[in-house]
């Protein structure tokens, strides 16, 4: 509640929050808002390919933002792609964060050998290039949104674990922590009430960065030919595919999804920053 009222007093967070809300609604209700279904192959035709913004498709629909190379209405593709990109980014961030939180806090709290082992696992994980993990996973599992989510979660969890542990370690060394442990509170309670809240500010910074980052990674995977299926493009794959046409002047295929991506990621980032300042008690005046 305190956080909510704080949001109201900060216009930047208000605006970015509103933007996120609009984007989220647009993504959730894409099938209702979008003029066409860009994933229904029987109605998408390459004969409609690369229409300039405002062009009329064969079935009479106006493509306000043009069409892509496969003849999908770019506006509809953006709305659906947004859905895919957000699903991928949020789900993978949530999974990675959960794993990272558990591992990081456990390591920091128990310390000793467990900490050493866990941190070595983190080291191993961090040294895996994301592209190889994705390639191996997609080779084993096939293409698909769920596989990309798994791949991105595996790529990211270690970073969360490391950050949580680093923050918690600093807390652990502080004088008050000794006082807390002396109170003989249960382990869960100590972790939950003392280690966790103090990791939150760095976690939020990381989570916002990572949400943005995972959208980029997903786009990069598409660029390298793995990732989501070509017939169901995400924002990232729309940009990647559209780039091939930019030298020939069909800027809209890559520009509009790119703009949408930037807007989304920027909104999330700004909101995350604001939230961090609100939550971090030391910054609250």
């Amino acid at each position: 509640m305190i956080a909510l009222s704080a949001i109201r007093t900060r216009p930047t967070s208000y605006v970015s929050g509103l933007l996120i809300a609009i984007i989220a609604i647009a993504a959730v209700f894409a099938p209702l808002i979008a003029p066409t279904d860009p994933y229904a192959l029987a109605t998408v035709s390459i004969l409609d390919g690369r229409l300039a913004p405002g062009g009329e498709m064969l079935d009479g629909t106006i493509a306000w933002l043009g069409t892509d190379g496969a003849g999908r209405d770019v506006l509809s593709a953006i709305l659906y792609g947004l859905r895919t990109s957000l699903t991928v980014a949020i789900s993978s961030a949530a999974i990675a964060l959960t794993i990272g939180l558990i591992v990081g806090l456990t390591a920091a709290f128990y310390g000793g050998r467990l900490d050493t082992i866990l941190m070595r696992v983190v080291d191993i994980q961090l040294s895996f290039p994301a592209i190889l993990v994705a390639l191996v996973l997609l080779a084993l599992l096939g293409k698909g949104i769920d596989k990309v989510i798994i791949a991105l979660a595996i790529v990211q969890w270690a970073l969360y674990a490391r950050t949580v542990r680093a923050a918690a370690m600093v807390e652990r060394r502080k004088e008050y922590f000794e006082a807390v442990t002396c109170l003989e509170l249960s382990n869960t309670r100590i972790i939950w009430r003392h280690l966790l809240p103090n990791s939150v500010s760095s976690l939020i910074v990381l989570a916002t960065l990572q949400t943005a980052h995972s959208i980029s990674i997903e786009a990069t995977l598409s660029f390298l030919g793995v990732g989501v299926p070509i017939t169901e493009p995400s924002l990232g794959s729309l940009i990647a595919n559209g780039f091939d046409y930019i030298l020939s002047g069909a800027y809209w295929i890559t520009f509009f999804p790119g703009a949408m991506l930037l807007a989304t990621v920027a909104a999330i980032n700004i909101f995350g920053d604001q939230l961090r300042e609100i939550i971090n008690p030391r910054l609250a005046k």
Partner: peptide, 13 residues
């Protein structure tokens, strides 16, 4: 898909 064969695509390296 247009002649009634509901088709999906799977590509790989």
């Amino acid at each position: 898909s247009r002649i009634g064969i509901e088709t999906s695509v799977e590509t790989m390296p």
